[in-house]
């Protein structure tokens, strides 16, 4: 079957200078943009996540935003587990949740630092 692509995936390589909130925001933004808008959790949830990340990046983050991001994600993909459960019609909404989960679990201190500094990131 050489020369045939059975599917696609993507790997993004970032160095240690990358702002991971900004990285997460651009992935979430992609999914929010791709959302068809048919079902409520994806239409409203992905754009809400994007707005919260935008706000944090603009320096107006609040400590409560970490729990908020986690819970909004949970309302799109209950349990935040793999394979994802969904309140949505299709898996697009739950896909938007994985970068949030990644920054909240693996890079939590970075998000917390950004929220507590409260200055816009260029």
């Amino acid at each position: 079957m050489s020369g045939v692509t059975p599917g696609w995936g993507a790997e993004v390589v970032m160095d240690e200078t990358t702002n991971l909130v900004a990285a997460a925001r651009s992935i979430v933004k992609f999914f929010a943009h791709e959302s068809c808008g048919q079902c409520t959790p994806c239409r409203e949830g992905t754009s809400w996540l994007e707005a919260v990340l935008d706000r944090i990046l603009a320096g107006a983050g609040r400590p409560a935003d970490l729990d908020l991001l986690a819970d909004v994600s949970d309302n799109i993909s209950p349990g935040l587990r793999w394979p994802p459960a969904m309140t949505t019609i299709c898996p697009l909404g739950p896909s938007a949740v994985s970068p949030i989960l990644a920054i909240l679990t693996r890079f939590r201190s970075e998000v917390e630092a950004m929220v507590s500094m409260g200055v816009p990131i260029g």
Partner: peptide
């Protein structure tokens, strides 16, 4: 609990905008 949370979550989503 899971059903309630899902319903509540959707209602919150519907209200945000």
């Amino acid at each position: 609990p899971v059903a309630k949370k899902a319903q509540e979550g959707v209602l919150e989503f519907l209200l945000i905008n």
